[in-house]
Design a protein around this nucleic acid. Structure first.
Length: 551
RNA sequence: GCCCUCGUAGCUCAGUGGAUAGAGCAUCCCCCUCCUAAGGGGAGGGUCACACGUUCGAUUCGUGUCGAGGGCACCA
């Protein structure tokens, strides 16, 4: 419809502005009084034509080719042209949805190009916390959105399993094995003090076996074998995180390990490639990258005087690996506390001189999450010690509500997670509000004894009420929401849309009855709510939230 | 000190270079003989942090100030 209107306006505009440059902007007015679509074309042409915008609007409307889809046009405000669509063209969406089913809203703009979404990527040093949960919800939703837009999506999780944090973890577990209390002076100064460390120590002493992804590790039980403690602790925590992810219903296609980059020589190769490209230099017994050549505010050390690499070197190696695996597009979803790595990783990749685009990869950063209960901030978890775990949250409010709340806000604004609200089974809670709309429709359709398959072909002309028009208009917007959310990398817009759609449905539900004697009106209405049910389901699926048939 | 993000109703948050800035909660008033009241309708509530620019038009774009959070190591 948008395309159609754009064509009409282009034709009309050409009769007024010969060859001048203009482009058609169409928007959906906030108020129904302003029609179904509006354009500011006359306002934009006012300056070059040096004419009153309303006068221009009159000329445009006069030059507009006739269309069966448009019921009325009018000039409003400073010079807006408002379009009112015919009832018939609004009704079309219902049969479109019912015939497309789960595919309604999907498009092929991604042309099956490969895209990788890397998210969560927690260090294997503890259970996942709320922040990881936000990354998981946003990242998974991004992946679903890209898939819906025709991209070939790979979900990837990267483990920093080779750095100082892991040494720290090892020391903490060792201390626990030896029975050193967390408040003892002998306990590692920056050690991990959560209860889970004691669990790992106990399991290690019991010589247990743990499995994570593709690895299986059996503990030696020997407290003098630090290497065994290290591998066991990492495997144990990866397994824990696997369980966290499972509880959150998130699946990854690929797990990448930092340690593997070292083992396979990719870190060394990357360093050599950087040296060869001439963007490095030796100074003070260290190897430096001239990252200032690529927009960084200072040069960065790559190899320390002790011979070890700084953390960003494996990061560059990892991203080079992504590039070589054929991901011309990569989106990294991470906490905003990592934003300083962006410049460095990109600088490192530029320094390789391998034709990697300047702005590659893309980043989506999320801000911090504060958890509230009973009006007070929740900071501690018994299991993890210093932070609220994702599992605590899922156990308390459920997977659906957790996913919804963590994905329903703009990633770049700070998020307050209100546990009481997420638990509430009332209209306070947007998750239930949306799911309830879906369940209500299911209930009505169940009570109707007819054949649902026939609804795709009923006569829709009885759908003339204001509530029906509003609902159809909303359903019509869904494909744009899916497309825009992916373009903007903004999953939260899907959540907002669903809330609005549910609201339209509830209003309609309260105003009219569906199971009535008038067969023609009944079928048309059932058809409309059936289409609404489909879109609610498709949209909830993008968020990874279930669409229950009963509540 | 420098860099990044944010600042919109009492609270949690949407939103947009354009028409009277929206929703939910909270407050107040209404609506089940009726397909799920986990619902609906209505009222009140705003200097879109502040200032100055760009623009026909700025809450939206730019600069500065203030406030919140984060980042600024041969830590990860």
């Amino acid at each position: 419809m948008k395309t159609h209107l754009t064509e009409l306006l282009t034709t009309a505009a050409k009769t007024i502005v010969s060859d001048a440059e203009f482009h058609i902007q169409l928007e959906r007015p906030k108020s129904a009084e302003h029609g179904d679509f509006a354009t500011n074309l006359a306002l934009m042409l006012a300056k070059p034509l040096k004419q009153n915008p309303r006068a221009i609007a009159t000329q445009i409307i006069a030059a507009l080719p006739a269309s069966e889809y448009i019921a009325k046009t009018e000039i409003a405000g400073a010079g807006f042209i408002n379009f009112f669509l015919s009832a018939q063209s609004k009704q079309k969406v219902v049969s479109e949805i019912l015939s497309a089913g789960v595919n309604y809203g999907r498009n092929t703009s991604g042309q099956q190009q490969k895209v990788q979404v890397e998210f969560v990527s927690a260090n294997p040093t503890g259970p996942l916390h709320v922040g990881h949960g936000r990354g998981a919800a946003v990242g998974d939703c991004l992946a679903r959105l890209l898939d819906a837009n025709g991209w070939d999506v790979t979900r990837e999780f990267y483990y920093n399993d080779a750095g100082a944090q892991i040494d720290n973890l090892t020391l903490s577990v060792l201390a626990r094995c030896k029975g050193i209390a967390t408040d003892d002076a002998c306990f590692p100064e920056n050690g991990y003090r959560g209860e889970y460390i004691a669990d790992i120590a106990q399991a290690f002493l019991n010589k247990e076996t743990v499995t994570a992804d593709d690895m299986q590790v059996t503990a030696s039980g020997d407290v003098n074998d630090a290497e065994s403690v290290r591998t066991f602790a990492v495997a144990y925590l990866r397994h824990e995180q696997d369980l966290d992810l499972k509880a959150f219903q998130i699946k990854f296609d690929v797990f990448s390990l930092e340690s593997a980059l070292y083992k396979e020589g990719k870190v060394a190769q990357t360093v050599q490639a950087l040296i060869n490209s001439g963007h490095t230099y030796e100074q003070d017994d260290a190897l430096w990258l001239k990252s200032t050549d690529f927009g960084d505010d200072k040069d960065r050390v790559m190899r320390k005087t002790d011979g070890g690499y700084t953390y960003f070197v494996p990061d560059v190696a990892y991203h080079l690996d992504k590039w070589q695996r054929g991901f011309s597009r990569v989106i990294n979803e991470q906490g905003a506390d990592h934003h300083s790595t962006i410049t460095r990783v990109r600088a490192g990749l530029q320094a390789l001189d391998m034709g990697i685009p300047q702005g590659w990869p893309d980043y989506v950063l999320h801000q911090m999450v504060t958890v509230m209960r009973g009006g007070e901030e929740v900071k501690l978890s018994k299991r993890a010690g210093s932070y609220v775990t994702l599992r605590d949250l899922i156990d308390e409010v459920g997977c659906d509500a957790t996913r919804y709340f963590l994905a329903a806000r703009r990633a770049d604004s700070q998020l307050v997670f209100d546990i009481d609200l997420a638990r509430a089974q009332t209209n306070d809670n947007p998750v239930y509000y949306i799911q309830y709309a879906h369940a209500r429709i299911c209930s009505v359709l169940n009570q109707w004894s007819g054949n649902a398959a026939l609804l795709a072909n009923v006569d829709l002309t009885p759908l003339v009420q204001t509530h029906e028009a509003a609902l159809m208009q909303r359903l019509n917007e869904y494909p744009e929401v899916v497309a825009d959310a992916a373009t903007e990398l903004a999953p939260h817009t899907v959540a907002n849309y669903l809330k609005d759609l549910a609201s339209d449905l509830h209003s309609y539900y309260n105003e009219y009855k569906f199971l009535i004697d008038d067969e023609a009106v009944k079928l048309a209405r059932l058809s409309l709510i059936s289409a609404t049910q489909q879109v609610l389901k498709n949209g909830l699926n993008l968020l990874g939230v279930s669409a229950p048939e009963k509540m």
